[in-house]
Protein backbone atom coordinates (compact mmCIF):
# COMPACT_ATOMS: atom_id res chain seq x y z
CA UNK A 1 0.00 0.00 0.00
CA UNK A 2 1.28 3.33 -0.89
CA UNK A 3 0.62 6.11 1.48
CA UNK A 4 0.67 9.44 -0.11
CA UNK A 5 1.30 11.94 2.56
CA UNK A 6 -0.21 15.23 1.75
CA UNK A 7 2.68 17.55 1.47
CA UNK A 8 2.40 20.62 3.62
CA UNK A 9 3.47 24.00 2.34
CA UNK A 10 7.20 24.32 2.12
CA UNK A 11 8.33 26.84 4.69
CA UNK A 12 11.76 28.11 3.88
CA UNK A 13 14.09 28.22 6.80
CA UNK A 14 15.73 31.61 6.98
CA UNK A 15 17.49 30.83 10.19
CA UNK A 16 16.50 32.05 13.59
CA UNK A 17 16.22 35.76 13.10
CA UNK A 18 14.68 37.53 16.02
CA UNK A 19 11.48 39.47 15.70
CA UNK A 20 12.94 42.90 15.44
CA UNK A 21 15.53 41.84 12.89
CA UNK A 22 13.17 39.96 10.66
CA UNK A 23 10.32 42.36 10.26
CA UNK A 24 10.19 45.27 12.64
CA UNK A 25 12.23 48.26 11.54
CA UNK A 26 12.20 49.58 15.08
CA UNK A 27 14.62 52.33 15.88
CA UNK A 28 16.61 50.32 18.32
CA UNK A 29 16.92 46.58 17.85
CA UNK A 30 19.30 45.64 20.63
CA UNK A 31 19.38 42.03 19.43
CA UNK A 32 20.74 43.18 16.08
CA UNK A 33 23.39 45.24 17.82
CA UNK A 34 24.42 42.27 19.95
CA UNK A 35 24.55 39.89 16.99
CA UNK A 36 26.39 42.25 14.69
CA UNK A 37 28.73 43.92 17.14
CA UNK A 38 31.57 41.55 16.35
CA UNK A 39 31.13 41.24 12.61
CA UNK A 40 30.04 44.76 11.70
CA UNK A 41 30.24 47.47 14.32
CA UNK A 42 33.44 46.64 16.16
CA UNK A 43 35.61 46.19 13.04
CA UNK A 44 34.19 49.41 11.61
CA UNK A 45 35.00 51.27 14.81
CA UNK A 46 38.55 49.91 14.92
CA UNK A 47 39.08 50.74 11.24
CA UNK A 48 37.81 54.23 11.85
CA UNK A 49 40.30 54.79 14.67
CA UNK A 50 43.15 53.57 12.44
CA UNK A 51 42.05 55.62 9.43
CA UNK A 52 42.01 58.72 11.63
CA UNK A 53 45.30 58.00 13.40
CA UNK A 54 47.16 57.34 10.14
CA UNK A 55 45.72 60.43 8.43
CA UNK A 56 46.47 62.78 11.32
CA UNK A 57 49.92 61.22 11.80
CA UNK A 58 50.98 61.66 8.19
CA UNK A 59 49.20 65.01 7.90
CA UNK A 60 50.98 66.27 10.97
CA UNK A 61 54.40 65.14 9.75
CA UNK A 62 53.89 67.00 6.45
CA UNK A 63 52.28 70.09 8.00
CA UNK A 64 54.92 70.28 10.72
CA UNK A 65 57.78 70.13 8.24
CA UNK A 66 56.17 72.80 6.05
CA UNK A 67 55.40 74.98 9.07
CA UNK A 68 59.05 74.86 10.17
CA UNK A 69 60.11 75.78 6.63
CA UNK A 70 57.51 78.55 6.44
CA UNK A 71 58.71 79.84 9.78
CA UNK A 72 62.11 80.35 8.15
CA UNK A 73 61.01 81.31 4.67
CA UNK A 74 58.04 83.64 4.94
CA UNK A 75 56.87 83.31 1.32
CA UNK A 76 55.96 79.67 1.81
CA UNK A 77 53.13 80.39 4.25
CA UNK A 78 50.62 82.14 1.93
CA UNK A 79 51.34 79.66 -0.87
CA UNK A 80 50.72 76.61 1.28
CA UNK A 81 47.70 78.19 3.01
CA UNK A 82 46.09 79.15 -0.29
CA UNK A 83 46.54 75.64 -1.64
CA UNK A 84 45.07 73.94 1.40
CA UNK A 85 42.26 76.51 1.77
CA UNK A 86 41.27 75.77 -1.81
CA UNK A 87 41.26 72.06 -1.02
CA UNK A 88 38.69 72.75 1.68
CA UNK A 89 36.13 74.06 -0.79
CA UNK A 90 36.10 70.75 -2.67
CA UNK A 91 33.45 68.38 -1.30
CA UNK A 92 35.33 65.44 0.21
CA UNK A 93 33.18 62.87 -1.56
CA UNK A 94 34.14 64.29 -4.95
CA UNK A 95 37.84 64.27 -4.08
CA UNK A 96 37.62 60.62 -3.06
CA UNK A 97 35.87 59.71 -6.32
CA UNK A 98 38.48 61.61 -8.30
CA UNK A 99 41.23 59.58 -6.63
CA UNK A 100 39.63 56.19 -7.28
CA UNK A 101 40.77 55.84 -10.93
CA UNK A 102 44.31 56.66 -9.79
CA UNK A 103 44.69 54.72 -6.55
CA UNK A 104 41.74 52.34 -6.73
CA UNK A 105 39.19 51.48 -4.07
CA UNK A 106 41.80 51.24 -1.36
CA UNK A 107 42.79 52.67 2.00
CA UNK A 108 45.37 54.76 0.11
CA UNK A 109 42.54 56.64 -1.60
CA UNK A 110 40.93 57.53 1.72
CA UNK A 111 44.20 58.45 3.34
CA UNK A 112 45.33 60.77 0.53
CA UNK A 113 42.04 62.64 0.82
CA UNK A 114 42.02 62.73 4.61
CA UNK A 115 45.66 63.84 4.86
CA UNK A 116 44.91 66.65 2.42
CA UNK A 117 42.08 67.95 4.56
CA UNK A 118 44.15 67.88 7.79
CA UNK A 119 46.98 69.94 6.29
CA UNK A 120 45.30 73.35 6.47
CA UNK A 121 44.45 73.14 10.15
CA UNK A 122 47.69 71.54 11.29
CA UNK A 123 49.87 73.84 9.18
CA UNK A 124 48.20 77.10 10.20
CA UNK A 125 48.07 76.19 13.87
CA UNK A 126 51.70 75.09 14.03
CA UNK A 127 52.83 78.22 12.22
CA UNK A 128 50.62 80.48 14.37
CA UNK A 129 52.09 78.82 17.47
CA UNK A 130 55.68 79.32 16.31
CA UNK A 131 54.98 82.93 15.38
CA UNK A 132 53.32 83.67 18.73
CA UNK A 133 56.62 83.22 20.58
CA UNK A 134 57.66 86.70 21.78
CA UNK A 135 60.89 87.94 20.12
CA UNK A 136 62.30 88.92 23.53
CA UNK A 137 62.18 85.28 24.62
CA UNK A 138 64.12 84.16 21.56
CA UNK A 139 66.53 87.04 22.05
CA UNK A 140 67.11 85.97 25.64
CA UNK A 141 67.67 82.35 24.59
CA UNK A 142 70.19 83.48 21.99
CA UNK A 143 71.91 85.59 24.63
CA UNK A 144 72.23 82.51 26.82
CA UNK A 145 74.19 80.89 24.01
CA UNK A 146 71.58 78.48 22.62
CA UNK A 147 72.01 77.43 19.01
CA UNK A 148 69.25 77.90 16.44
CA UNK A 149 68.21 74.26 16.84
CA UNK A 150 68.25 74.45 20.62
CA UNK A 151 66.06 77.55 20.50
CA UNK A 152 63.57 75.70 18.32
CA UNK A 153 63.65 72.55 20.42
CA UNK A 154 63.64 74.07 23.91
CA UNK A 155 61.94 77.45 23.51
CA UNK A 156 59.82 77.82 20.42
CA UNK A 157 58.23 74.37 20.26
CA UNK A 158 57.19 74.20 23.94
CA UNK A 159 55.67 77.68 23.69
CA UNK A 160 53.93 76.76 20.44
CA UNK A 161 52.61 73.53 21.88
CA UNK A 162 49.15 74.79 22.98
CA UNK A 163 48.39 76.06 19.47
CA UNK A 164 49.78 72.89 17.89
CA UNK A 165 47.73 70.62 20.10
CA UNK A 166 44.60 72.71 19.49
CA UNK A 167 45.24 72.08 15.79
CA UNK A 168 45.64 68.35 16.34
CA UNK A 169 42.35 68.29 18.24
CA UNK A 170 40.47 69.98 15.42
CA UNK A 171 42.30 67.84 12.87
CA UNK A 172 41.26 64.65 14.63
CA UNK A 173 37.54 65.46 14.88
CA UNK A 174 37.51 66.74 11.30
CA UNK A 175 39.14 63.55 10.08
CA UNK A 176 36.68 61.38 12.02
CA UNK A 177 33.86 63.24 10.30
CA UNK A 178 35.34 63.03 6.79
CA UNK A 179 36.23 59.37 7.21
CA UNK A 180 32.53 58.53 7.63
CA UNK A 181 31.82 60.09 4.22
CA UNK A 182 34.75 58.25 2.64
CA UNK A 183 32.96 54.94 3.26
CA UNK A 184 30.67 55.78 0.35
CA UNK A 185 33.62 54.93 -1.90
CA UNK A 186 35.69 52.50 0.14
CA UNK A 187 34.19 49.95 2.54
CA UNK A 188 36.06 50.96 5.67
CA UNK A 189 35.13 52.66 8.92
CA UNK A 190 31.86 53.58 10.58
CA UNK A 191 30.53 55.18 7.43
CA UNK A 192 30.16 51.68 5.97
CA UNK A 193 27.32 50.56 8.29
CA UNK A 194 25.78 54.05 7.98
CA UNK A 195 25.61 53.83 4.17
CA UNK A 196 24.64 50.13 4.28
CA UNK A 197 21.83 50.86 6.72
CA UNK A 198 20.62 53.81 4.63
CA UNK A 199 20.66 51.72 1.49
CA UNK A 200 18.54 48.88 2.86
CA UNK A 201 16.65 51.33 5.08
CA UNK A 202 17.49 49.50 8.28
CA UNK A 203 17.26 52.07 11.03
CA UNK A 204 19.15 50.33 13.80
CA UNK A 205 22.25 49.93 11.66
CA UNK A 206 22.63 53.55 10.57
CA UNK A 207 21.50 55.06 13.87
CA UNK A 208 23.85 52.92 15.97
CA UNK A 209 26.77 53.46 13.58
CA UNK A 210 26.05 57.19 13.64
CA UNK A 211 25.96 57.20 17.42
CA UNK A 212 29.26 55.31 17.51
CA UNK A 213 30.85 57.89 15.19
CA UNK A 214 29.58 60.71 17.41
CA UNK A 215 30.82 58.91 20.54
CA UNK A 216 34.21 58.31 18.93
CA UNK A 217 34.55 62.01 18.04
CA UNK A 218 33.58 63.15 21.53
CA UNK A 219 35.85 60.63 23.28
CA UNK A 220 38.80 61.49 21.01
CA UNK A 221 38.24 65.20 21.67
CA UNK A 222 38.04 64.61 25.43
CA UNK A 223 41.15 62.43 25.52
CA UNK A 224 43.12 65.03 23.59
CA UNK A 225 42.03 67.78 26.01
CA UNK A 226 43.28 65.69 28.94
CA UNK A 227 46.58 64.91 27.20
CA UNK A 228 47.01 68.59 26.35
CA UNK A 229 46.47 69.60 30.01
CA UNK A 230 48.90 66.94 31.23
CA UNK A 231 51.62 68.08 28.85
CA UNK A 232 51.31 71.78 29.62
CA UNK A 233 51.27 71.98 33.45
CA UNK A 234 52.51 75.60 33.36
CA UNK A 235 49.27 76.73 31.74
CA UNK A 236 47.04 75.41 34.50
CA UNK A 237 48.39 77.92 36.97
CA UNK A 238 47.25 80.86 34.85
CA UNK A 239 44.16 79.42 33.23
Amino acid sequence: MIHIVAAGPVIPNYGTAHGCIANDNAMFCTTWIREHWHDTLEPALVQHVWLTAIAVGIGFAIAFAFALLAHRFGWLAPTFSAFSAFLYTIPSIALFQLLVPVTGITVTTIEIGLVGYTLLILFSNTLAGLRSVPPEVIEAARGMGLTQFQILRRVELPLAFPAISAGIRIGVVTTISLATVAAYITPYGLGKPIFDGLQINYRTEYVVAGLLAIALALVADGVLVIVQRRLTPWRRATA
Partner: peptide, 18 residues
Protein backbone atom coordinates in the same frame (compact mmCIF):
# COMPACT_ATOMS: atom_id res chain seq x y z
CA UNK B 1 30.77 74.72 21.25
CA UNK B 2 33.87 72.55 20.79
CA UNK B 3 31.73 69.48 21.44
CA UNK B 4 29.21 70.57 18.83
CA UNK B 5 31.98 71.09 16.34
CA UNK B 6 33.27 67.58 16.91
CA UNK B 7 30.05 65.92 15.68
CA UNK B 8 30.47 64.24 12.27
CA UNK B 9 27.85 65.64 9.88
CA UNK B 10 26.97 62.30 8.30
CA UNK B 11 26.49 60.80 11.77
CA UNK B 12 24.22 63.70 12.78
CA UNK B 13 22.17 63.10 9.64
CA UNK B 14 21.88 59.35 10.23
CA UNK B 15 20.98 59.73 13.90
CA UNK B 16 18.48 62.50 13.16
CA UNK B 17 16.88 60.66 10.25
CA UNK B 18 14.30 58.60 12.22
Amino acid sequence: SNLGRALPSLAVISVGLP
